[in-house]
């Protein structure tokens, strides 16, 4: 069972690094090539949301991402330390496109909507000290052995 943990400061430039690391480990874990774009986008969305929240509320605090293979699934957990007001629209059901025009450009909740549309297993856990987003995808093999 391999786990990679990464912490990064709340800078938009680091989100791309997190995407690249997550995609590389997903590939090594055996996630199908067809799913790697979904992993890349979902991890990017989770990290972007965390970066935006940290920049508003706690820019000096790091964001944490954990990547692991767990019983044949590739699991990613992104944890932040910021309040979670932006989650209300997503958790209460995403708004139809017409309703977006009043809240441009931030579109709160859109990132979560994208994640739930991409990963077949998503858990968004708002807590008093921040938000934890856990998502997972099937890996090709169990026990973290990459498929060859």
């Amino acid at each position: 069972m391999a786990t990679v943990e990464l912490t990064f400061s709340a800078l938009p430039a680091h989100v791309r690094t997190a995407r690249l690391v997550a995609t590389a480990i997903a590939r090594r874990t055996g996630v199908a090539e067809a799913l790697l774009d979904e992993v890349r986008l979902a991890v990017g969305e989770a990290c972007s949301r965390a970066v935006e929240a940290h920049r508003v509320h706690c820019p000096g605090e790091p964001i944490r991402i954990e990547l692991r293979d767990d019983s044949g699934r590739f699991e990613v957990t992104v944890t932040d330390l910021a309040p979670n007001d932006d989650l209300k629209p997503a958790l209460n059901g995403f708004r139809p496109p017409e309703a977006m025009f009043g809240i441009v450009p931030e579109l709160p909740g859109l990132g979560i909507a994208v994640i739930t549309g991409l990963a077949d297993d998503v858990e968004v856990s708002p807590g008093p000290t921040g938000v934890r987003i856990r998502m997972s995808w099937p890996a090709a093999t169990a026990n973290g052995v990459p498929a060859h």
Partner: peptide
Amino acid sequence: FLDSTGLGVLVGGLK
């Protein structure tokens, strides 16, 4: 690559 931030920019431009 395009994420929801990019979507927001396009919707903002449309508006």
